[in-house]
Design a protein around this nucleic acid. Structure first.
Lengths: 251, 251
DNA sequence: CGATCGTTTGATTAAAATCAATCTGAGTGG
DNA sequence: CCACTCAGATTGATTTTAATCAAACGATCG
């Protein structure tokens, strides 16, 4: 059950400058939304914010704190994680094109989100041109990320998927990290310690828990990686690449 | 080699009303772009419009006629088709966020595109608010489609991927079709007869030609589908689903 | 007619899923 | 504090799935 914390205020918003509203003059924005039905909601780790199909998409959300996984599932339960949301991300805006959510959002950590009715977001988009512009920028990044992921899922072998994944996380300035250096210090990141289970890693890469576990165990034995309290460190990136990837497949 | 046909004019554009410029008042648009460096280019089937990485993304394109596949590849040549473009689609706009193209665009049929320098599209976006709005709408649709595809690639078995694929095409009003009913009659669709080779279907679904061929042969023998001059018809959708899909996986 | 390209089909191998035990560690309650 | 439980994770054995290797087929083209 989400807990309503309060009505949201832009000037106190921790992720204001990472959101799609970042470019807008603060006073104008605050003035415009003063009669809007925004609210700040909190969810506990594991809670579902909305589900594909069965909810009608009447609200969009901005993530203030925490991490959220966005998934899609087949009727028999097989699930694919399609994206992981970090502070500042806008999500649940399917309502623009379709009445129901196209995916499911589940809190990976305790979360705080700002909810905004779709209709009111639509008004904002009309009245403040900058919003569409930042949405375009974000959506393009989104599309690019999805395309990259399609290549991961469609063209790579299990070991390559896994190696790319942990390498990407360990580098990543703009991406997620197990140890989340990239998020450290940024507003809204206090609760953002990413910890994915084997099952979630599998669900992200289209693999089973066993396959994930086997490769990780193997790489630990070989000294390429190490893991402590759920956080993976890469000890020998070159060795890992040599062992897991055909030339260039993991860069 | 692309052939420059002429400078583009919006009022003669066959896909004007399917493009991101559809909502704009015609005269204003034409007036605004009159000094722009638009040009209409033609490409033959098989030609590459741009390649991931090695081109700097200085132009965006609108597809006027024909079909284009957008792909991503690994260094060793393994290739994933990430999207198929139809008349009216805007593409190659990676320049907004990044200097180089994130993917490769290859003509599936003879094509006609309208090329617009990124810098000028940026001007348009600033001066005509509606453009960002239609871009948002399209990009959302794009994201949704990519998410769907991630589920296909990450969670489904070969037979399910293939069955979903041909079922989707055969229904599809808004999607692509082998026989392309959905496009028939729409402006710009004259050259839009989709014919994908086994290898391209494989590259779209993350399978090999042999696997594609085997399932299709099997389904022909069983009378679920038939194929004539490259166009697949579904004879028994229920039978196909029963044979190829776990409950609900192919709807 | 031979050459070529895409497809089909078969045989074999490799990869990953599945099935089945165990193991581990973090709570829980006696 | 010590069993006990439970959810993940690991490991092994086995099966299934799809890739790979290999050959042949069929249409099209110069």
């Amino acid at each position: 059950m989400p807990h309503v914390k309060c009505k949201g205020h832009c000037y106190t918003c921790p992720v204001r400058h990472q959101s799609i509203f970042s470019e807008l003059p603060e006073d104008t924005l605050e003035e415009t939304i003063k009669d809007f039905h925004t609210s700040v909601l909190t969810y506990e780790s594991g809670e579902t914010l909305f589900r594909q199909y069965d909810d009608s998409s009447e609200s969009a959300f901005t993530l203030r704190k925490g991490l959220i996984k966005v998934t899609k599932s087949l009727p028999d339960g097989r699930t694919q994680i399609v994206r992981i949301l970090v502070a500042g991300d806008l999500f649940g805006f399917d309502g623009f094109a379709n009445e129901s959510y196209n995916n499911t959002a589940i809190a990976l950590t305790d979360c705080e989100v700002c909810r905004l009715p779709m209709a009111e977001l639509a008004v904002l988009r009309k009245s403040m041109p900058g919003i569409d512009q930042s949405m375009v920028a974000r959506l393009i990044k989104n599309v690019r990320q999805s395309e990259d992921m399609l290549l991961e899922l469609g063209a790579k072998k299990a070991s390559e998927k896994l190696a790319s994944f942990i390498l990407r996380l360990s580098l990543s300035d703009q991406n997620l990290s197990f140890s989340v250096d990239s998020l450290q210090g940024k507003p809204g990141s206090e609760w953002a310690k990413l910890h994915l289970s084997r099952s979630e890693i599998g669900s992200l890469l289209g693999l089973t828990i066993e396959t994930v576990s086997r490769f990780f165990s193997d790489w630990k034995r070989k000294g390429f990686i190490q893991e402590e309290k759920g956080s993976i460190q890469i000890l020998d990136a070159e060795g890992l690449k040599d062992a897991a990837c055909t030339q260039g497949a993991c860069n």
